[in-house]
Amino acid sequence: MIEVRGLSKHYGSTTAVDDVTFTVKPGMVTGFLGPNGAGKSTTMRMIVGLDRPSAGSATVNGRPYAEHRAPLREVGVLLDAKAVHTGRSARNHLRALAATHGIAKARVDEVIALTGLESVARKRVGGFSLGMGQRLGIAAALLGDPATLILDEPVNGLDPEGVIWVRTLARHLASEGRTVFLSSHLMSEMAQTADHIIVLGRGKVVADAPVHQILEMAKGTAVRVRAPRSEALAELLRGDGVDVTADDGGRLRVTGITAPRIGELAASTGLVLHELTPLEGSLEDAYLALTQGEVEYHAGALPPSPDGSFPTAPSATMTAPTSATGGTR
């Protein structure tokens, strides 16, 4: 259980985190979403006492992090895959951390096995790829077998296999009743991992709701339809809040009506459908809608297209900045 109350952080005249209040509950995965520079990392650092809040408080399991008798056993943290001395081996890094809490060597080997680092455990961390560094960071977070896990951008730099592994791990940890709090700037990632989502934009909480509610916030859930006689179908569907746009390939993007209803209408008039797909990317739309105007660093002059989405594919817009996940200083 993480409780954040009125937390703020100012750097001179810049406000990184602005009066943020939320609760992260045990037994589920809570996603912490926001564009780069929204204040996610700063908030997480304040929770574990690395940064001093300008105002407000953060407690973990009822107490400020620093006041726990065994902090690593209460909270496991991955703030930054590079929080490791590059001249030390992965195993020695974990041994040094474990020693502070009298955690047995056996547990060190356990987390090394758990994160699939056996083959590189005795190599110096300086030569690690971002993905291996990420695994080492997760190993360090799991070291104390903590009831609460705070993971900042855990899938950053991982290969697809690794991404699935983190997702499975997060879900598993939550199913054991632990509090799992992980940040990402990738909406699609959160959609598959989180039960609850807190969206941060420009240091403020923009949304704090279960995933399905965040999904419902998507303006106009869209359905993709392919039909041989697409113009006739478009004619049939159009009107009364229903919007139909056709793309180059003759596919229709329909908003304002559910997929079953489209199917029923097509059947009743004998029109053949080749595809009828409710679009999953709508979570991305919800995210964009929520954080619009809250993004600190825009990618440049990309004028929004008439339907409110970016002219490029939404997923590309969201996944492009993976290599540049900043926020860390």
Binding site: S119, R135, W165
Partner: peptide, 10 residues
């Protein structure tokens, strides 16, 4: 590098 797809915790 091997990947543990199941996720047992210690």
């Amino acid at each position: 590098m091997t990947t543990t797809t199941t996720a047992p915790t210690g």
